[in-house]
């Protein structure tokens, strides 16, 4: 099953999402901030990244930009997890190179189908 990376600083949310994704058969790697996210992405080459945006230290926008600028990581689809409350989050996420965004709290079935379509379209090309 596909290996994915979840970048999320909130421990409760990270554990919850990781557990649900693992139950759906994904191998879930986790990172707590942007810097760790970039490092894990280039080391593990996951099939997809779920990126929270407001992270301590290096935020999700910067991390996405770096991943999309990296030779070995630019092909990895990134779905940003945005908080509704933050104005302009989505636009900024797409500008930073994220392929898509989901608003938190995530609609899990929809997230799964988005992930599936990115991972499978990636597998074909």
């Amino acid at each position: 099953m596909a290996k994915i990376l979840l970048v999320e600083d909130n421990e409760t949310m990270r554990n919850m999402l990781a557990r649900r994704l693992a139950r759906k058969g994904y191998e879930v790697l986790v990172a707590c901030d942007g810097r760790e996210g970039v490092a894990v992405a280039s080391r593990e080459n996951p099939a997809l990244i779920l990126m929270d945006l407001s992270l301590p230290g290096m935020d999700g926008w910067t991390a996405s930009k770096q991943i999309k600028a990296g030779q070995t990581t630019r092909h990895i689809p990134i779905i940003a997890l945005t908080a509704h409350a933050m104005r302009g989050d989505r636009e900024k996420a797409l500008e930073a190179g994220c392929d898509d965004y989901e608003i938190k709290p995530v609609d899990f079935p929809r997230l799964l189908s988005r992930m599936d379509s990115y991972i499978n379209s990636g597998a074909v090309t």
Partner: peptide, 12 residues
């Protein structure tokens, strides 16, 4: 914004 975070955990 502060209210949403714990609520997201409850929903999730």
């Amino acid at each position: 914004h502060e209210l949403r975070t714990p609520l997201a955990a409850i929903i999730g």
